[in-house]
Simulated assay, not measured.
Amino acid sequence: MRFVLVNGRTPWLKTFCMSCGEPIHAHYLREFSTGLPFCDHDCYAQYMDRWIEKVRRSNQAAGFEDYR
């Protein structure tokens, strides 16, 4: 998990949280490798949990082992 906490800077373009869809304001979190914006750590964690579950289901559907 790598992210950057941005304080006091609003994105140049109108930007929305990738998890809840709320507009991003002066304080937000940006995922380091993809640059995806999130309202806060909670939205980031929810988004990552859903992404991990989606990958797990995809691997199971493809017949791969469950790598827990």
Score class of each variant (00 low, 15 high):
residue 56 R to P: 00
residue 17 C to M: 08
residue 6 V to K: 04
residue 27 H to R: 03
residue 12 W to C: 08
residue 53 E to S: 15
residue 37 P to F: 04
residue 23 P to Q: 02
residue 37 P to G: 04
residue 38 F to I: 02
residue 45 A to D: 12
residue 59 N to P: 07
residue 67 Y to T: 13
residue 48 M to I: 14
residue 34 T to G: 04
residue 61 A to C: 09
residue 67 Y to K: 10
residue 31 E to A: 10
residue 26 A to D: 13
residue 4 V to N: 13
residue 39 C to S: 03
residue 62 A to K: 13
residue 20 C to L: 07
residue 13 L to T: 10
residue 4 V to C: 05
residue 55 V to L: 08
residue 60 Q to F: 07
residue 10 T to A: 01
residue 17 C to K: 03
residue 41 H to F: 11
residue 37 P to M: 05
residue 31 E to M: 10
residue 64 F to M: 13
residue 17 C to A: 09
residue 56 R to V: 11
residue 7 N to I: 14
residue 48 M to C: 11
residue 12 W to D: 10
residue 50 R to P: 01
residue 46 Q to D: 09
residue 9 R to M: 08
residue 53 E to Y: 09
residue 23 P to R: 00
residue 21 G to T: 04
residue 11 P to N: 07
residue 4 V to P: 00
residue 27 H to D: 14
residue 50 R to E: 12
residue 9 R to D: 02
residue 50 R to V: 08
residue 24 I to C: 00
residue 3 F to L: 11
residue 39 C to G: 04
residue 5 L to S: 05
residue 54 K to L: 14
residue 10 T to P: 02
residue 61 A to G: 12
residue 59 N to G: 13
residue 36 L to F: 07
residue 8 G to N: 08
residue 64 F to K: 15
residue 4 V to F: 02
residue 46 Q to Y: 06
residue 31 E to P: 01
residue 21 G to A: 10
residue 68 R to M: 12
residue 15 T to R: 07
residue 5 L to V: 10
residue 60 Q to C: 08
residue 11 P to D: 03
residue 16 F to C: 07
residue 31 E to I: 01
residue 42 D to M: 06
